[in-house]
């Protein structure tokens, strides 16, 4: 990457007035960097904000009351986009994607168009659909990426809701029973852990070792990989940070942990995110912030193929989350 001043026609949102931090793009410029797209190989599909949980760290404010969910026509447009593009990976997320009735058809029809399909799950939304949905996931070798913040019951429940730890363990055991999480089966079960408060996550390798040890010994659960990600100061997590008087310190912590080396591998450089209404974003966090790709709302049906290499990525102060420490890749 080269030292280039960002276009004067900014695609970024104004930086947050609530806190006095250096704008993200200014920090990039200090390091002679700019954030531009590389080859896009992942299509992330956000099926909507409806969720059975009300997690306190959710950057989308997802929950049971949300009405924004992808309809059949938009699902068709997304499948058609995948068919005329060349994505390696399809990454399905929400809200709780299991609550969108079009999920099974999406998986069926989009599977021929990418080598790898991922489904992000909060686990508890899967518990009433285990037989039919999991058969489908197994059939299409869908990688399950499950939220599991902590091996500690009270930490998990404080972030995700009372009783969620036990429900999650029950679903993980079911998935293990059909081969998910076992190295031999080829059915991949990955866990995602976000800190349960205003602090950064532990080193990945050490945390993964500990999760394997405790989940297997104490709960009889196996999984393939653990990914640790910092919480993004948007949505419900942002509200919690402000209300608990942690916002300024958290942003300062993200800023002081800025790692220029992480920029090259950021997921927004190789991913395009389509929202429930078919509009496109550089990542799910920009979707939450309302920062569309290229600075204007483009519908998925308008796209000829993957976004152009070299095009600018919209940024704001939440981008410091993905460049903190090892980065969000």
């Amino acid at each position: 990457m080269t030292a280039t001043k960002l276009s004067s026609e900014s695609i970024d949102e104004k930086e947050d007035a609530a806190v006095d931090v250096m704008p993200f793009k200014a920090t990039l410029a200090q390091h002679n960097l700019k954030l531009v797209r590389d080859t896009t190989h992942t299509l992330q599909i956000n099926l909507g904000f409806l969720c059975n949980q009300v997690c306190r760290h959710c950057h989308l404010n997802a929950g049971p009351g949300r009405q924004e969910n992808m309809d059949a026509k938009t699902v068709d447009a997304v499948i058609s986009y995948a068919a005329r593009s060349n994505f390696e990976t399809i990454d399905i997320t929400g809200g709780a994607p299991e609550l969108n009735s079009h999920l099974p058809r999406l998986i069926e029809d989009i599977s021929p168009h990418a080598a790898r399909i991922m489904l992000r799950s909060n686990l508890s939304a899967m518990k009433d659909k285990l037989t039919d949905l999991v058969d489908l996931l197994q059939h299409h070798r869908v990688t399950i990426v499950a939220s599991f913040p902590s091996v500690n019951i009270s930490q998990t429940d404080s972030q995700r809701g009372e009783g969620i730890f036990q429900e999650s363990v029950a679903v993980l055991k079911y998935l293990n029973g059909i081969g998910y999480g076992s190295d031999k089966s080829g059915l991949v079960l990955n866990l995602v852990s976000n800190p349960t408060g205003a602090y950064l996550p532990p080193a990945q390798e050490q945390a993964e070792k500990r999760f394997h040890q405790i989940l297997e010994n104490r709960w009889g659960v196996v999984f393939n990989n653990l990914y640790n990600f910092a919480n993004v100061p948007l949505g419900r997590f942002r509200d919690w940070l402000i209300n608990s008087n942690n916002f300024e310190n958290y942003l300062s912590k993200l800023l002081s942990s800025f790692n220029a080396c992480a920029v090259e591998g950021l997921m927004c450089r190789s991913l395009v995110s389509v929202a429930w209404d078919g509009s496109l974003y550089d990542c799910d966090f920009n979707l939450a912030r309302g920062l569309p790709m290229g600075g204007r709302k483009i519908h998925v049906s308008e796209m000829d193929g993957t976004p152009k290499q070299g095009s600018l990525i919209a940024t704001a102060d939440h981008c410091y989350t993905c460049t903190a420490g090892p980065g969000f890749t």
């Binding site: 500690n152 930490q155 800190p195 602090y199 996550p201 532990p202």
Partner: peptide, 13 residues
């Protein structure tokens, strides 16, 4: 306290 949380410990530990 912050370091323990950031290294993955919980309040019970």
């Amino acid at each position: 306290t912050q370091a323990c949380l950031e290294k993955g410990s919980n309040l019970a530990e």
